[in-house]
Design a protein around this nucleic acid. Structure first.
Length: 298
DNA sequence: GGTCGACCCTCTTATTTAAT
DNA sequence: ATTAAATAAGAGGGTCGACC
């Protein structure tokens, strides 16, 4: 039994249970069906299934439980589902690629810049064990490399980029670094004390992107999106505080509370005429200024 | 050396049966 | 009719041998 088969089996089981609760029989049926479809043998015994459940729990952090009254297995919901979804997504992609590597000419990969994810393992290890790290960092607007010596606290993803949130050992300030501009990562043996009040979710609660607003106050924003773009925004939220206030035939009114940072303004501007800012005035002026400057070019 | 299935016993929960 | 006990069904989990 190859690792690949096992991993794929895990995904099949998880996806099956994502769809609906199922008894062991039903899961076995699904695995049999997938075996035929994919040309592998996913059929397993009850004992192996149990071991799979344990493995899925430890690998993905998804706990699968059994409900006696309904005679069904189900996924127990946990709060940090984003992380799990991401992991599963990664495994899905991985599996999809594995499946199709016999016919690569049918897939046109997006040429992506390296995302610096190769440093993730090391950083995660350092974060978990409170170990100081050093690395060289390339600022992207100037051609300058500097060696940084910091205490890593958390990883954060924002708009397809990964960042590490750190505490500057000397200045005692929070600093964020993009993983794709970070190299020569070294993990030291020096332990540091993790600030007890640090909570990455709390820190970025009102942030649009990676800029955490230590010097800002969050503002209530009201946006009117035209349909059909509004539907897109509804399904792919701009910010997690986003709520639908009102919906009409032509548009949807969204409210959200966040720091109005440059990247957020840029996002609104890039939506062009599909969105109208209703609140606050500062954002309205800012967006108007951008569009006016663009108009002045012609 | 790790994975899987067979076997076996225990544990949990639901349902049925018996006793009050 | 209510409660307690027996039974059934299926998970939980340890061990061992077969197989890569």
């Amino acid at each position: 039994m190859s690792t690949r088969e096992t991993l794929q089996r895990h995904t099949i089981i998880i996806n099956r249970l994502r769809k609906s609760d199922a008894s062991f029989e039903e899961i076995a049926d699904k695995l049999e069906l997938e075996s035929e479809l994919q040309g592998y043998d996913f059929n397993i015994s009850k004992r192996t299934f149990q071991r799979d459940i344990e493995n899925i729990e430890s690998l993905y952090g998804i706990s699968i439980k059994f409900n006696f009254s309904r005679n069904a297995w189900y996924i127990e919901e946990v709060d940090n589902t984003e992380a799990n979804a991401r992991l599963l997504e990664a495994f899905d992609t991985f599996n999809a690629l594995k499946m199709t590597n016999r016919l690569p000419q049918y897939i046109d990969y997006e040429k992506r810049r390296p995302r610096g994810t190769e440093n993730m393992n090391g950083l995660l290890h350092a974060i978990q064990n409170n170990l100081r790290v050093s690395f060289t960092y390339q600022k992207y607007w100037i051609d300058e490399k500097r060696t940084r010596y910091v205490e890593p606290l958390a990883l954060k993803e924002s708009i397809n980029r990964w960042y590490v949130i750190t505490m500057d050992a000397e200045k005692k300030e929070i600093r964020t670094f993009a993983l794709d501009r970070l190299s020569e990562l070294e993990i030291t043996n020096e332990k540091f004390n993790r600030p007890e009040d640090f909570d990455v979710n709390e820190m970025f609660k009102y942030s649009f992107g990676i800029i955490s607003g230590v010097n800002f106050e969050p503002e209530d924003v009201l946006l009117a999106f035209r349909k059909p773009q509004a539907e897109y925004i509804r399904s792919l939220k701009l910010h997690h505080s986003q709520d639908v206030v009102k919906e009409t035939k032509e548009e949807i009114l969204f409210s959200m509370k966040l720091f109005i940072t440059e990247d957020f303004v840029q996002e609104i501007v890039s939506q062009g005429s599909r969105v109208k800012v209703l609140q606050p005035d500062s954002l309205i002026h800012e967006v108007k200024r951008y569009h006016q400057e663009a108009m002045d070019l012609y």
